[in-house]
Simulated scan of single mutants.
Amino acid sequence: MNFKRFGRPAVIAIAAGLALSSCAANEAAPADDAPASTLTGTLNGAGASSMDAAQQAWIAGFQTANTGVTINYEPSGSGGGRKAFIEGGTDFAGSDSYMSTEELAGEFASCVPGTKAVDLPVYISPIAVIFNVDGVDELNIDADTLAKIFSGAITTWDDAAIVALNPDATLPSATINAVHRSDDSGTTKNFTDYLGQAAETVWTEKASDTFPFPGEGAKGTSGVVDAVTNGTNMIGYADASQAGDLSTAKLQVGEDFVAYTPEAAAEVVAGSPLVADRAADDLALDLNRKTTNPAEYPLVLVSYAIVCNEYADAAQGELVKAYIEYIASAAGQTVAKDAAGVAPLTAELEANVAAVLATVK
């Protein structure tokens, strides 16, 4: 991963020290002999519904180890989560899209006046193109055709473009029912970012939390999954961890059609640089959507924990720091993998998140 912007020697030194201390902790006495946690209080978070399964598993693990702490997470969507955090209604946000320049230019009610918040990647997952089409179990799709389906330019399942990609399929002469997120969604922003980059001559809209075309909308990841599951001749997009038993399309990457896997999603993230012209401790990623490497799945989302550099309430800052340190650790990432089938952070990214958290107060 390219961390050119993350170049402050002091922060890198912290990362190295944290990696050493983590190794030592892993080799220490069994958990039963660990000192009891002294943390107490309540944390409130809100945001991405894509990561809700992981959040619930993280909360259970953290509260088991820290019995004096209560954590609440509302899967209200990335846009709603960022808004609530910015206004001081929550202690942290979960978001499938990093903060915009406009958001960063404003004030954060929970932070010390004059300080900012940062984006810390904690969750990597493919976005699945889910479908429920009469007589079709497998579906190949390329970016241009997917863009035309969701913009409304292709309206029937037996359209020549879809047939050409699926010569062995029996595609019905039926209307395509394409479902998008009706709420402000980081999953939508990642989906539209992929289409804007991989199908740039077809999809001319900018990446956005708000879906830019009319059509059938459903609230939250669960809403899209339910609509596709219970409808007829449906297609939608959702965090792969919540695709359930639905059929999922293979995306064309280079000359191949690629099924999503956590490993292929992680490969894209590993090869993506940080977003330019942001603070050194902001780890927003500029995801590579144009890859032609079939070992990579470019329709991927990275969910961020958004936290203050410095909290106005130091006690809340201590709780947030402890919780996010847990979810971004090797142990927390294993919990998320087991609960949601997502890809763990790379060791390099894990160390850089830890380095930033060491400066949070």
Score class of each variant (00 low, 15 high):
G217I: 03
A315K: 15
T346I: 09
F108A: 13
T188W: 10
G152A: 04
V356Q: 00
V133F: 00
A109V: 08
L104R: 14
I324D: 08
A25V: 09
T204E: 15
G114A: 13
N352D: 07
A57M: 10
Q197I: 12
K290V: 14
V320R: 05
A53H: 00
W58P: 04
V335Y: 10
F3L: 11
S241Q: 10
I176Q: 10
Y123I: 00
M99K: 06
E74T: 14
S173C: 02
D168N: 14
A336P: 00
F92R: 04
S21M: 14
S100M: 04
A331Q: 13
L120S: 01
I12A: 04
N44W: 07
A279S: 13
D33H: 00
V118N: 07
P113C: 03
N288V: 11
D256G: 00
G89F: 02
P212E: 05
A29H: 14
V253Y: 03
L165M: 10
N140L: 09
Q252M: 13
T192A: 15
R8G: 01
E263D: 05
E310K: 14
P344E: 06
R278C: 10
G114Q: 06
D158C: 12
I176A: 10
I162T: 03
T229L: 06
G231K: 03
S78A: 08
F108M: 06
T38R: 13
A207S: 05
S76T: 12
R289A: 11
T359K: 14
T188L: 12
V112N: 00
A13G: 13
N132E: 06
N72T: 07
D193Q: 14
K189T: 08
N177E: 05
K189Y: 15
A305G: 08
E318K: 11
E325L: 07
L104A: 10
E87P: 04
Y237D: 00
T221N: 12
V268D: 01
A340W: 02
G68L: 08
A19G: 06
P113T: 05
A279C: 04
K337M: 13
A57L: 04
N309R: 12
T201M: 06
V129N: 04
A28W: 10
E87D: 15
E350F: 06
G217K: 01
V11N: 01
S97Y: 09
Y304G: 07
E74G: 04
A16Y: 08
A31M: 02
G77T: 13
